[in-house]
């Protein structure tokens, strides 16, 4: 054992280790009871209306339950085995992975870029409002709008046609290689306003002193950004990443509307795959297993990020 630590412990023992521990425990207990009072209403609602359904689905995923047939015998891991062997699962999983990576990467870079661009610009509030605007519209409406942008006789092809002075009739939402990137572009258009706003809110709340001090010391802008702004912004960045991962995993509305005529629509993401299993084939137990996989991964990622955040917090403070 570390001799210094040993010394500390001896010291602690002399003034009554047990007493200190008890006092600390009592303090934490008081804080906890207080915290519980603050959290109670939210916990109550979330438990009753969200967590119970989640538990119900977890139970469902181990049964053979189908709405009409009402069979609910225990099935063990069978639904999960079936998931792996479904001919659509691999593609759905691959596309979801693509979505998660893309929805973390692109809105973040685009949002940060736009935040930088609009810095100290005349009329910046108007520009920010315009960038944020798509986020306010219903995703289904956004999907319909962009469907016509990508349609064979749509806006994009017309513009490309004028550019190349040749008629272009690419079916952006019909080709296997194009459909996911095309919808991701719409997603970025729709969501980078929110990322921009969250980043700006984080930036606005940064403490002023370290930045000023660094500038006084003659640090170059990039150095300040890299060594001071970025670490201070890390918690906000992590939060944005959590939200993006969640969005990427559960993306549905856009794929539902824009992919409506893509024949392999069920492979566009895990959430779409699950929807088809549940609503079209009525294999609710099987769909529940898919949902558990999605939810489990998201929760794991969130947990990992909370751990990471705790570490970042310690570094910053």
């Amino acid at each position: 054992m570390n001799p210094l630590l040993q010394h500390d412990q001896q010291l602690l023992a002399r003034i009554g280790l047990a007493q200190i521990k008890a006092r600390e425990r009592a303090r934490q207990g008081r804080q906890f009871r207080l915290a519980l009072r603050f959290m109670a209403p939210a916990l109550l609602l979330v438990t009753a209306l969200l967590l119970l359904p989640v538990l119900y689905n977890i139970w469902l995923s181990f049964t053979q339950w189908q709405l009409f047939e009402g069979r609910d015998e225990f099935a063990g891991w069978e639904n999960y085995h079936q998931l792996w062997s479904s001919p659509y699962f691999d593609d759905a999983l691959g596309n979801t992975a693509l979505w998660v990576v893309a929805s973390v990467l692109f809105p973040l870079t685009a949002g940060l870029g736009l935040a930088l661009l609009f810095r100290q610009m005349p009329g910046q509030e108007w520009f920010k409002s315009i960038i944020f605007l798509p986020r306010i519209l219903a995703p289904t409406a956004v999907g319909v709008m962009w469907y016509y942008v990508y349609a064979p006789q749509g806006m994009l092809n017309q513009m490309l046609g004028q550019f190349t002075s040749m008629p272009v009739e690419t079916g952006w939402l019909f080709e296997e290689q194009l459909v996911t990137p095309a919808i991701i572009l719409t997603f970025v258009w729709q969501s980078c306003g929110l990322v921009m706003v969250l980043l700006l809110l984080g930036l606005a709340a940064l403490p002023r002193d370290p930045l000023d001090a660094a500038r006084m010391d003659g640090a170059r802008p990039w150095q300040v950004f890299r060594h001071i702004t970025l670490p201070l912004l890390a918690p906000t960045l992590l939060m944005v990443v959590i939200l993006s991962v969640l969005a990427g995993f559960t993306v549905f509305d856009l794929l539902w509307v824009m992919g409506a005529n893509y024949p392999q629509q069920r492979t566009l993401s895990l959430a779409v795959f699950m929807y088809f299993e549940a609503f079209q084939k009525n294999s609710w137990a099987f769909a529940a297993a898919t949902a558990v996989v999605i939810g489990g991964v998201v929760l794991a990622v969130t947990w990992l990020q909370t751990l990471l955040q705790a570490r970042v917090d310690r570094m910053v403070r």
Binding site: F32, L50, M274, G295, T306
Partner: peptide, 29 residues
């Protein structure tokens, strides 16, 4: 802003409500 044990777990408990795709809440609800 408070110190108590398992703070992250309590947070995750609240957050876990919405990690499922929303369609799956329909039947139990």
């Amino acid at each position: 802003r408070m110190q108590f044990r398992h703070r992250n777990l309590w947070f995750l408990l609240l957050f876990a409500g919405t990690v499922f795709p929303f369609q799956m809440y329909l039947i139990p609800l």
